[in-house]
């Protein structure tokens, strides 16, 4: 999804809104008179002309794109930081997200938190809603785990911000296998920490060989495979979305106006949000599986 698609989509939406508004107003104004002829078509035509002009402008600005080319890198490119020390591009984007989150939380801590009142309004209302929702969702899946609300909020915020970054035509940090694997490893560590803390070593072992002792190796294997499956699921979905969107660009070539915005909205905004929800749900599921006491 490119910046130009967003701009064009916005212009289209504005045009449609203007048409609807105009028609509505006219209807309200002269109810008993005959409806005016031709005016909405005029506006539609004007918006088409504006669209064509925008397209021309963008093609002059960005240069014509060749049809039938297809660029995809599975491993993101490396960028130098200090001299020879290089990191992946997605890591740099991840740092941008971290900086934004850090700044937002500092601002929140020193500007908004001292002004909290008993009757929430404005920012306080939003934050309290988010915290309450995350906490409720975590405790509906896992009993007595107070830290999990903040963990799943962190994951959700990271993924939402990476969706926004991708909307700004940067590569989403979650489309890097290293990043998703790091997140899955965090889940793995938290799962085992909470499981060991609640049940103890013996209890955890007993939990792993719950129906019979024969299933023990399989349960251990599936526990080890859990972070791999989490990481591969997220990465595969993000990369798949990228492939589909670049294929749409490849097919449309120079005529790629408007349509990629709609397709991209689904594949780069809606799908990652679903994946964020699934990642969070699976994390909580793993944890509740690891912490539940095996019934005799």
């Amino acid at each position: 999804m490119n910046v130009k698609d967003i701009v064009i989509l916005l212009v289209e939406a504005l045009a449609v809104w203007a048409i609807a508004n105009k028609t509505e107003k006219r209807k309200a104004k002269d109810q008993d008179r005959a409806p005016s002829k031709g005016k909405p078509w005029l506006i539609a035509g004007l918006s088409l002309v504006v669209l064509a002009g925008l397209e021309l402008l963008f093609s002059l600005w960005g240069g014509a794109e060749e049809s039938g080319t297809f660029e995809l890198e599975m491993v993101p490119p490396q960028v130098p930081i200090f001299g020879d020390f290089t990191v992946s591009l997605t890591v740099v984007y991840g740092w941008i997200i971290l900086g934004v989150v850090l700044a937002a939380s500092l601002v929140f801590r020193f500007v908004f938190l001292p002004k909290f009142t008993d009757k929430p309004k404005g920012v306080q209302n939003v934050v309290e809603t988010i915290v309450e929702y995350a906490g409720n969702y975590a405790s509906s899946r896992v009993e007595d785990a107070p830290v999990l609300g903040s963990y799943i909020t962190a994951i959700g915020v990271y993924m939402v911000l990476s969706v926004i970054l991708e909307g700004l035509s940067m590569r989403a940090p979650t489309s890097d296998l290293c990043m998703t694997f790091a997140m899955a490893l965090m889940t793995f560590v938290i799962t085992n920490y909470l499981g060991l803390k609640k049940l103890g070593f013996g209890g955890r072992m007993k939990n792993l060989m719950h129906p019979t002792a024969i299933v023990f190796p399989f349960r251990v294997l599936s526990d080890i495979a859990a972070p791999v499956s989490l990481a591969c699921r997220l990465f595969g979905n993000m990369l798949g979305a990228m492939v589909v969107v670049s294929m749409v660009y490849m097919v449309l070539g120079n005529a790629a106006v408007g349509i990629p915005a709609v397709v991209g909205l689904f594949f780069t905004a809606f799908e990652p949000l679903i994946q964020a929800y699934i990642f969070i749900t699976l994390t909580l599921n793993n944890i509740s599986e690891a912490t539940e006491v095996a019934a005799e």
Partner: peptide, 13 residues
């Protein structure tokens, strides 16, 4: 949702 995510993972693999 949960089931679809687990099913989908085979395709993703």
């Amino acid at each position: 949702m949960l089931g679809l995510a687990l099913t989908e993972s085979t395709a993703i693999y």
